[in-house]
């Protein structure tokens, strides 16, 4: 089974982006690419080829849910695991994002010490299904 190594985080709040980096690079040991908006993410995905993308919902200009199908449409998009991150926790919202093609939906605030493990579990579950 392929190991999860490369993660991209798309988040417009620079402080939260910092926390993602410390959590995933420092604690998790992943190769992490950070993007402040979805356009930047779309440009950098072909270069950094992340296996898993953490995508915030509320992003300037192009929202996470709007960017999701565009990310999927990139070469290799169907293999990528996309995790939607939202501050609006609701069962309906979760179902809607899953319908849209997200692999998992996580709610803010998240626990940075547990995040590497959570993302690894999402990745592994997806690999077993595939």
């Amino acid at each position: 089974m392929t190991m999860l190594e490369r993660i991209m985080v798309v988040e417009d709040d620079p402080d939260i982006l910092d926390i993602f980096e410390m959590s995933l690079a420092m604690l998790g040991g992943f190769d992490v690419t950070l993007c402040e908006n979805a356009r930047e993410a779309l440009e950098r995905i072909p270069l950094s080829e992340p296996q898993l993308i953490v995508l915030d919902v509320m992003l300037p200009e192009l929202s996470g849910p709007d960017a999701l199908p565009m990310i999927r449409a990139l070469p290799g998009g169907s293999r990528r695991v996309i995790v939607i991150m939202t501050a609006r926790a609701s069962a309906q919202g979760r179902a809607a994002y899953l319908d849209l093609g997200a692999d998992e939906v996580l709610f803010k605030p998240f626990e940075p010490t547990e995040l590497p493990g959570v993302l690894r579990a999402v990745w592994d579950a997806r690999q077993q299904r595939a």
């Binding site: 402080d15 939260i16 926390i19 959590s23 501050a87 803010k108 605030p109 998240f110 940075p112």
Partner: peptide, 8 residues
């Protein structure tokens, strides 16, 4: 949003 930064 700020709470996520603080708690993180």
């Amino acid at each position: 949003t700020p709470l996520t930064s603080v708690s993180g």
